[in-house]
């Protein structure tokens, strides 16, 4: 095998793993390979995938965003409150997503201008925003929205077959792929993550790149929040706890380096699907949710260890 072939194989590793798991599950459970079930899996995956797309940019910068779960909660509470107060659902949705972007930009400012380590900055914001969502909602869920528009966002189907969240996910995937691959901004993300000093000395406004990336991550978390709220027809102030870890797992499973500068959005989509398919398969086989956690964690560790071994 030439080094190039090896590199390609390495890059496609997560995809191959996904295929293997799918084939395995198809044999083990007759229900797995049905259109209905696959669409169901994709719909479940979409929340994590949306967050993980934003997280991919953050991790490409060598950062981390622990606040996504809390941003999701604040945004969904905010959107729900606005709708309950009688505002237009379209407006409420947009304000929710914009608020997510704003919260993300605060992360970015703390990291870029305050020079605080991303882990600490977003850990602090995670706690502050969780409190905010509890304060806003007074600690109780907000339920019952009577808007067709809003319930379609998370619960509808396109052409009676493809769940709307899956459509969002694919659209966002295409957008992120384009941004990372084809735009000046995308190149600056890779350069800043790979070597911030060299990027800065090449005229890249690295502060601005960082702030934008955290802003995007916030907006994506808010978007996931809207989808989730719509699907459940309820905004929970405690929603999204632990979601940051699933998103990070998807990014890392997809082969993006936590050190920054290296990775791709396709890997993240595959990573999110892998986690979703595993969950679904274990459910179909009737494995208890306690064991599911063990299996899920072990698979993540195994995947990263294999990745390490291949790079040596």
């Amino acid at each position: 095998m030439t080094p190039q072939q090896k590199a390609t194989l390495q890059k496609l590793g997560p995809f191959i793993a996904l295929m293997v798991v799918c084939v395995g599950l198809a044999f083990m459970s007759p229900d797995f390979l049905t259109v209905g079930n696959l669409m169901n899996v994709m719909r479940q995956v979409s929340i994590n995938a949306l967050i993980a797309f934003g997280m991919t940019l953050v991790i490409l910068l060598g950062g981390i965003d622990l606040s996504v779960g809390s941003i999701l909660a604040v945004s969904s509470v905010l959107t729900a409150m606005l709708m309950k107060a009688g505002y237009d659902p379209v407006l409420a949705t947009l304000v929710g997503i914009l608020a997510g972007a704003l919260m993300g930009s605060v992360n970015g400012l703390i990291v870029a201008k305050g020079k605080v380590a991303p882990f600490i900055a977003t850990l602090g914001m995670m706690t502050v925003l969780r409190g905010t969502s509890l304060v806003l909602s007074n600690g109780s869920p907000i339920t019952g929205f009577s808007s067709d528009f809003f319930s379609t966002l998370g619960g509808g189907y396109l052409a009676g077959l493809v769940p709307v969240p899956v459509v969002w996910t694919l659209l966002m995937f295409a957008l992120f792929w384009f941004v990372l691959k084809k735009t000046v901004f995308g190149r600056h993300v890779y350069a800043t993550g790979g070597n911030p000093e060299a990027a800065r000395l090449s005229g890249v406004k690295t502060d601005r790149v960082q702030i934008w990336v955290y802003t995007i991550s916030g907006a994506m978390a808010a978007m996931a929040g809207v989808v989730l709220t719509s699907r459940l027809n309820s905004a929970q102030p405690t929603a999204g706890v632990g979601y940051e870890l699933d998103a990070i797992a998807a990014v890392v499973l997809g082969g993006t380096s936590l050190a920054g500068g290296r990775g791709w959005i396709f890997g993240t989509l595959v990573g999110a699907l892998l986690i979703g398919v595993l969950n679904n398969g274990l459910n179909l086989m009737g494995v208890s949710s306690f064991y599911q956690l063990i299996v899920k964690g072990a698979v993540i560790l195994l995947a990263v260890l294999l990745d390490r071994a291949g790079k040596r």
Partner: peptide
């Protein structure tokens, strides 16, 4: 440490300033 982004390609480095 200052001149190149070692993980990027020759092309991506060469055009970093004037992309």
């Amino acid at each position: 440490s200052q001149g190149l982004v070692l993980g990027l390609s020759v092309r991506e480095n060469a055009t970093l300033v004037h992309l």
